[in-house]
Design a protein around this nucleic acid. Structure first.
Lengths: 205, 205
DNA sequence: TGTACATCAGTGAACGCGCGTTCACTGATGTAC
DNA sequence: TGTACATCAGTGAACGCGCGTTCACTGATGTAC
């Protein structure tokens, strides 16, 4: 690690970190294998000892991102228990929190263009993450009178889209858009209105 | 146009169309100046008779996109009048309709990385488009009891984020995500729940 | 403890490629008389 | 209508660049005896 000589010691992780840094700073296009190698203090060719190539490196970054993401979502869900409502709201907040705290991972996952179906492992972990939100939605659906209950998966898709939109438009300084609102507030209030619309929170709170 | 000889006749538009095609097919990264020139049946150097360079070409495509977008939004708004509710819902639908009908433009505008503040003209037209949604939100706010009325700009930001999220996640075959729901239905139902939450449509409709 | 040897994780030079951009040029078009 | 000439919109060759990737190599590390 420190004072490295010929051997790096932990090059694989160092490369992923370099890639995440580049992606965070310059967007999904800004990442190049050569530049990442340079940042890690190593020849581009060395990358091939640990990854199959450029794509594989990003996919690995995305994978690690999904692992963190799924953990965060699960943790938020558990923390909100046993209240279905609190568990649900917590997962919504966790989405945004993840995007803000791990921008490099977030971009690798959602904007780099790598497909979630690239490998079975990647597909599995992304499904796992999505399932947490779906579970929270299912729990919450139990509290809606059966005759006006929407499918839980539609429910979670709504919130997912909303969260994603807030992140893309307001949480990362996108194409020159400046909003007068704090992204957290925006998401919180939108979810509040939405839940009221479902009759899950009182109309006058 | 047809049977072109040395002179093309309408190269500028042809180049933009080629660029839009490339962007639609291969994503924002897939577009290269050389490839666009090739598609238009012309040498890369010829591009410089009409554009300052690669960036300028995309910016022009985005600009034309915003013009169409603003028009569509305004038209939807007008069609919904005099009902504030119908006008609002129509603009929400128009957002999605635009993204589906003009994917190349949509990507140039929102995913290509070009800033809306690149030129004053671009900033102006994008503001104009956004203003339509804000107006619709303001009209609708009039129908909410003053004491529980949210700021109209927050209101429109919510819907904008929701629309954007639906488009990004479900309307374009994103990173391997397949949803069991039609994007139009998804957006429609989400907006319905949201408006109900604001007390703008009856709770039992 | 010392030595021989296999394995591992890097190097560095080279490659072919497509990119955006420039430049002097030339063929086509439009206009003045 | 014909000719001279200016302007315009393309060509085609060349450039330097950074990219991802390959290859034979070599220095460092770990292990067997």
């Amino acid at each position: 690690m420190s004072k490295r000589g010929y051997h790096h010691g932990n090059l694989k992780e160092a490369l992923i970190e370099a890639a995440l840094g580049l992606i965070t700073e310059k967007g999904p296009t800004g990442f190049t294998l050569s530049e990442a190698a340079k940042r890690a203090g190593v020849t581009p060719a060395a990358v091939y000892r640990h990854f199959e190539g450029r794509e594989d490196l990003i996919a690995e970054a995305a994978f690690q991102g999904y692992v963190i993401f799924a953990d965060l979502m699960q943790y938020a869900y558990d923390q909100g228990q046993p209240s279905a409502l609190q568990a649900f709201e917590a997962t919504g907040r966790a989405y945004l929190a993840f995007a803000r705290k791990y921008p490099g991972h977030y971009i690798s996952m959602f904007e780099s263009g790598i497909s979630v179906n690239r490998t079975p492992e990647l597909a599995a972990i992304s499904t796992k993450a999505r399932r947490v939100l779906e579970s929270a939605a299912e729990d919450l659906c139990e509290h809606i009178p059966e005759d006006r209950r929407p499918p839980a998966s539609m429910f979670s898709a709504h919130i997912w889209a909303l969260s994603h939109g807030v992140v893309e438009l307001f949480a990362r300084n996108s194409p020159g858009i400046q909003s007068p609102f704090d992204p957290e507030d925006l998401l919180e209030s939108a979810i509040g209105v939405y839940l009221r619309g479902l009759g899950l929170i009182a109309a006058d709170t």
